[in-house]
Write a protein that binds this DNA or RNA. Structure first.
Lengths: 228, 228, 228, 228
DNA sequence: TATGAATGAGTCTTCATTCAT
DNA sequence: CATGAATGAAGACTCATTCAT
């Protein structure tokens, strides 16, 4: 349903921010002002969800942060569940598509591909600070609220294909054969998104670790391991 | 259950550890039967917290799972907060202490130390399946409920010292100098705990990834990176 | 209802008075209908508090009496404590101010002042039937819920000054010197409010004692007692 | 039921404290040790009821103060209601009987009688500090928990006769005829018990008003008021 | 006697949701 | 568009009470 709206948009070159160009939503709100307010609510929800967790964030809190009444939130997103769905369709899923595209570039070499993937991941989180926390908390965890919905929308074939591709590279001798193909992606995410999810609080009182530092660190680890 | 793995003296040598076995708990319940029921509630709470998140798990859910009334939960843990505190003191903190001990072994070589750390991490999670999910969701995330409490109990000096030690190793030429010392731990956790946090659901319908596979994978990555 | 008796300027000239009419309340409800419902809840609460005691009256009971849901009560008064605070500020404190004004009239003679005070007290209770019971139970008693809050709002200097004034009158030979100044007020309240607090039930099945009868009785007692 | 136990005891000369001499209660507890514990619980309950109000005092609070378990309180007083009943029968009612006796002395003159009544009242409260607060809060107030029970046990005939007696005195010219007979008792209680109910907290930080001072004050007020 | 374990009923409070205006 | 009023459902917590030991 939302895919036709987002997938083409995601394919464009100006990055993973869809911004809801022309297409009117089927639901009620549609005016120019309303569209803007709706997008702002989505942004605020995203920010709060990332900061406190989805389950811990009440609609009232979102409304307060936006300076509107809770009833207003219901006006734009008939229900809490729909708000989540729209969040996924309009903010979360596009990022996923974008990332997949980096990996699926058939031209580049295996090692370059993985490095590029890591770097894109870091840039993505830099542009969308909510991504890391949300991913870790609501995507990875068993009962994560995003996980269930994402799983419904996008199957696992994507992942299957990626694993096969990695296994293929190993057979071609282009990748460390001791690695477990099905764990490579988990490792990449674990090495990048995971530390980024904690960076906001780690930065407090400490010298913050910049995104570049993280990218360099992860690439160094991937390229050579920990040995000198 | 978890005690045989972690308890051997570890709890005694730190500060605000549980101090349980001999003296009666300050609170009310203390009989033999009660102590057992209490421990069971703790186990169930841990399980549910890991599965659904702490904030999403009601005391009623814990009670239902245990086959008792919600009032029973209040009987053993005066309040929701106290339940959390006891969970930390009696289940969570001991694991942390155990892990710290592995890293602080002054005898072993840097590379061995890190490998041993990863392996212990994997074993720990294998014996305490709730650990991974709980760590990822409630320890890493900004508003994580465990983070705040753990921070109160244990300061950050521990972490500071570890970082210095790693930097020292790099200077001695015993560790890849391109790594960022303050990120090494995040990487280790990201490579192990992070995938383990998802493994339970990934295993369903899929060929499960065993703990050994994960350990081998991570060690392979650490030792040599992704290059063939 | 009680406003015409007490409000004329009294609330404005003191400190933490209600300041209601013009500006919107800081809290949520503000519409015309809501304001009325809120006032009705306040009235019902006052009535029940007087009849059963504050601690014995549940929010549910107030809601039931008003024909609304308990959640409604929370809608207007975020918490039980706030309901009490508003009760004090908007209903209880104004009466206190009014009474103080009667006593502080610098023109009248001592004996007249005390008599006027008693008469005002009787009239006040007649117009605000909840006052007597509430005063006796929650203001006088050690753990009385009003006592604590009133003490926070208004200090004791008021009382101090009154005592000094009475002592002054005694020195001037205008008041029975055998009286204990610090007990005069207690006596006045004891002679009027105290019997009034019981009158509702005493009246049942008995020939009721009217307010005028009480006033006459107390004045008769006082007149031949307070004169030098 | 309880009357046969208490009325004779009250008639003795050593004051209004019954102390449960020999007679075994019909209920369960009866051993020597138990009897003592039971009396102590009664005392503590009385103290707490007076301090915080009956409704505000939980059985748990009483148990804690006594250093026993809440179950113990149930052991002695099958139910909360029975505790109240026993409190009335064994502590409260005897005082009432004692007071009635003072008033009913047929020998003394009206004015002396009333003065003696006041003085006895003051002494009674001095010996039983819980009396004043309990009377004011739970006896006077409409929903007072003692009121209802006392009313069940002792009718109003007592009061009726007293009123008639006062009216008779007025007709004989021995009492101020402007007084309302049915209010005389209320006035006496209001003048004595009422101030005493507040004295505990008034004393804090202030020079305390002694019982003697109060007695003198009230008598002074009465003497020049009740004389014809 | 005495108590720990256990519970049902009730209280306060929060929150998503609806609806009339 | 926007909001105030209103509510049902659920959650945390308390408390009197029971019962086996």
């Amino acid at each position: 349903m939302a895919n036709d709206v987002l997938d083409p948009g995601a394919g464009a070159s100006e990055g993973p921010a869809p911004q809801k160009k022309p297409g009117r939503r089927p639901g009620r709100p549609s005016g120019a002002h309303g569209e803007q307010a709706r997008a702002q609510l989505l942004d605020i929800a995203l920010e709060l969800f990332a900061r406190q967790g989805i389950g811990e964030t009440t609609l009232g809190a979102i409304a307060r942060e936006a300076g509107v009444t809770p009833a207003m939130v219901h006006y734009y997103f008939k229900t809490r569940d729909q708000l989540l769905d729209m969040l996924i369709d309009e903010r979360f899923a596009p990022l996923r598509v974008e990332l997949a595209r980096v990996f699926n570039d058939p031209e580049s070499e295996p090692v370059d591909t993985l490095r590029a993937f890591v770097e894109t991941l870091v840039v993505t989180v830099e542009k969308n600070p909510w991504f890391a926390a949300l991913w870790v908390r609501e995507m990875v965890s068993e009962g994560g609220l995003l996980r269930q919905r994402m799983a419904e929308r996008f199957g696992d074939e994507h992942k299957e294909r990626a694993i096969e591709r990695i296994a293929g590279w190993q057979k071609e001798g282009k990748l460390n054969p001791a690695l477990e193909p099905s764990l490579v992606f988990a490792s990449l995410f674990g090495l990048t998104v995971f530390p980024l999810a904690t960076s906001r609080w780690r930065a407090v009182g400490d010298r913050a670790v910049t995104s570049e530092q993280l990218a360099r660190h992860v690439v160094a680890l991937l390229m050579n391991g920990i040995q000198p």
